[in-house]
């Protein structure tokens, strides 16, 4: 693994070459007043001037909806069609943020930890992440409070740090997958030497200590804080659906007479229906209970299992929330709560 120093021209050429070669590239594009990932098509320009995409690139490995299998009944015989795992094409996620790349690894933990989800695995094996360090950040960013960094390499196959002095970019090739890509497209690039990466990174302030939050949460199940914080929450799924770490999904039956499909699709713990029982009973009957679940899951239950928070501080949920349910503000409050 090596570090390269490329010019701005080389960087642009790299993307152009990959596009010319017809690679499937999932990259941020400005659309409808927002910047979001999409598969680059003819005429698309990769966005430059933005802090964060509306969504993460999570759906490359965990689509919003996917068919697990389909079936058709013939009398008592049932014919099942499994779409298999050999249908995926290589995808390059271009310009993910370090927080997203890191999140990708956490998502993978969920799908591979005690059960290997074959479809997920197949998708991931076809995915190469070229992340870009953050030169800028905004008030919603808090990666540094949850153990991340605007230049963190975790989860990326290649990390590109554009140099703020206009002097090209630092390319950190991190995995064999990354190496393969670099070998093909950055063959003539210079080795990086003496670049102070840190100097080119955004200054993301530490707002709270994740450990402190976790410690406070231990006895906070019945705290009034949930009610206070969640009062204005509208109960939509925006926070969960833009989150790069959230993995909750629903299994749906798309049944039509004798045929049907089983579908896995995103779900959100913010929805009141999420825990609704057929009987009518709902163990999380209030938004306060649902908000508590969201915070406890990310900052208590996941740390218990994985040793780190289920949040990489990308700040998307805070940006997406229609009523400013600002997560870092709430976490700060919890950390300072008695």
């Amino acid at each position: 693994m090596e570090n390269l120093h490329i010019t701005n021209g080389q960087l642009a050429q790299w993307l152009d070459d990959m596009r010319r070669d017809g690679l499937r590239i999932f990259a941020p594009v400005a659309q409808g007043g927002k910047t979001d990932f999409k598969f680059l098509a003819e005429g698309d320009t990769v966005a430059e001037d933005y802090v964060q995409t509306a969504q993460s690139a999570k759906r490359i490995v965990l689509p919003m909806a996917e068919v697990l299998f389909s079936y058709r009944k013939h009398g008592k015989d049932i014919e099942v069609a499994n779409p298999g795992t050999d249908r995926f094409n290589d995808t390059i996620i271009w310009k993910a943020r370090p927080c997203d790349a890191r999140a990708m690894r956490q998502v993978a933990e969920v799908f591979t930890r005690d059960y290997d989800d074959a479809i997920f695995e197949a998708r991931r094996s076809h995915t190469t992440i070229v992340a870009f360090s953050c030169n800028t950040c905004d008030d919603c960013c808090f990666c540094t409070s949850v153990g991340g960094s605007p230049g963190g390499t975790e989860g990326s196959d290649i990390l590109v740090t554009t140099l703020t002095d206009g002097g090209g970019a630092l390319v950190e090739v991190l995995t064999p997958k990354g190496e393969g890509l670099a070998a093909k497209y950055l063959a003539g690039a210079a080795r990086a030497d003496g670049i102070d990466k840190q100097a080119h990174l955004a200054d993301v302030r530490v707002l709270f200590s994740a450990d402190e939050v976790r410690a406070k949460l231990d006895g906070a199940f019945d705290s009034p804080v949930w009610q206070e914080q969640s009062e204005r929450c509208l109960g939509c799924g925006a926070c969960a659906f833009v989150c790069p770490v959230c993995t909750c999904f629903d299994i749906q039956e798309d049944a039509h007479g004798a045929r049907g499909r089983r579908i896995r699709c995103w779900d959100s713990c913010g929805f009141s229906m999420f825990t609704q029982h057929t009987s009518g009973h709902n163990p999380r009957p209030t938004q306060a209970a649902r908000w508590r679940q969201r915070i406890l899951h990310k900052f208590s239950y996941i740390p218990e299992k994985l040793g780190e928070a289920g949040c990489t501080g990308c700040g998307r949920c805070s940006r997406a929330c229609p009523v400013d349910m600002n997560i870092s503000e709430h976490l700060k409050a919890i950390a300072g709560h008695e």
Partner: peptide, 27 residues
């Protein structure tokens, strides 16, 4: 194109003060 970008988070429903059904048709 616009609908393809929808993530079905139902923020539109949640934010709308006139979407107050106990059980929405989508549920």
């Amino acid at each position: 194109g616009e609908m393809s970008r929808c993530i079905k988070c139902y923020a539109c429903r949640a934010a709308c003060p006139l979407c107050y059904c106990t059980r929405c048709i989508v549920d």
